[in-house]
Amino acid sequence: MSATPARLDGEALLRWPLPALDDGADKEARGRVLVIGGSREVAGAVLLAGTAALRVGAGKLVLATVASAAASLAMAMPEARVIALPETPGGGVDPDRVSSLEPVAEAAGAVLVGPGMMDAPATEELVARLMPSLRGRTVVLDARAMDVVTRLQRFDEPVLLTPHAGEMAHLSGAAKEDVLAEPLRAAREAARRWNAVVALKGAQTVIARPDGDAWLHEGGNAGLATSGSGDTLAGAIAGLAARGASLEQACAWGVVLHARAGEQLAERLGPVGYLARELPLEMLAVLRGLEAQAHSTR
């Protein structure tokens, strides 16, 4: 373990290329992503995450969300299979029906849980019950799905957690001010404690593995602090993981693509005011640019 985290930027990604895709690869070879999320009041978060997963190259997409939102989601995203799940009185996913998700989860290469989930107790229970079915899968836990760490304490297999400073303070019991003061230390301690890859998001984003290896990204802009931005980042990470990237590599690429997409939108539209729904297509443009740069240097 190096005490100094590795810097993350475009040049770093060029030295850490994504797993190659054969030109003849079908959609199965590019991986299947399952996104579990949404609620009666925040139905669009899974749409943002799913769009990002496909834009970075995942081959197949399954969205599992509350029944009240499933039909409209299927119309909004015809590229995806949409599964309607029973709801709690609070408008979240009913954990008592989690068994219906197990075969779908087992068929997925990457599983993202959390975008748009609002019923905190139900979400924690659902994730706790679902985890045994996710063994051997690449798992990304976002938003309220991360609360499961307060129950499980430590994962049998590493998963990816994507907290901002406030969420890290809630999950770890540390003061938010301490997290902000020493993000590298906070991320490393959490990764080791939970046996997880932790992406502590902020103006400086730190990615840490359980063994202490870490990466640091500085960039992005104020416009990325907008509703749904985190959903697009989580979806992009899941999509890259479905293509065969490791948790830390998928996260590193996702963080840089997300930040650069924000920078490019800010240049065209202004520093604030662009929408999260505009980020996935911009991430695709950034990805294509990096790939072209890689080819030109060979």
Rank of each mutant, 00 (worst) to 15 (best):
M1C: 14
T4A: 14
P5R: 04
P5V: 07
A6E: 12
R7T: 12
L8Y: 01
D9R: 08
E11I: 09
L14G: 05
R15E: 15
P17F: 15
P19W: 14
D23Y: 15
G24Y: 11
D26W: 13
G31Q: 08
R32M: 07
L34Q: 03
V35Y: 02
G38F: 07
E41Y: 08
A43V: 11
L47G: 06
A52K: 01
L54F: 10
K60L: 12
L61D: 03
V62A: 09
T65F: 03
V66N: 02
V66A: 05
A69G: 09
A70G: 06
A74L: 07
A74C: 09
A74P: 01
M77K: 10
A80D: 05
I83K: 05
P86Y: 05
E87F: 07
T88E: 03
G90D: 10
G90I: 10
D94P: 01
D96L: 10
R97N: 14
V98I: 11
E102W: 14
G109F: 12
V111W: 03
V113T: 05
V113K: 00
P115I: 06
D119E: 09
D119V: 05
E124Q: 12
E125R: 09
V127G: 00
L134M: 08
V140A: 07
L141W: 01
D147E: 14
R151T: 04
Q153R: 15
R154Q: 09
P163K: 00
M168D: 03
S172C: 09
E177Q: 15
D178N: 07
L180S: 11
A181L: 11
E182Y: 14
E182I: 06
P183I: 04
R188G: 02
R188C: 06
A190V: 02
R192P: 00
N195W: 13
V197Q: 09
A199V: 02
L200E: 04
L200K: 00
G202Y: 04
Q204L: 14
Q204W: 11
T205V: 06
A208Q: 04
G212E: 12
D213G: 08
A214W: 07
A214N: 06
W215N: 01
L216Y: 12
G220K: 04
A222S: 14
G223M: 03
L224W: 06
A225I: 03
D231S: 13
T232C: 09
I237C: 02
G239Q: 06
A241H: 02
A245W: 09
Q249T: 10
A252I: 04
L257W: 02
H258N: 07
A259Q: 02
R260M: 12
A261K: 01
A261G: 04
A261S: 09
L265T: 04
A266W: 10
P271F: 15
P271N: 13
L275Y: 12
A276I: 02
A276K: 01
R277M: 10
E278P: 03
E278T: 06
P280Q: 08
L284E: 15
Q293S: 13
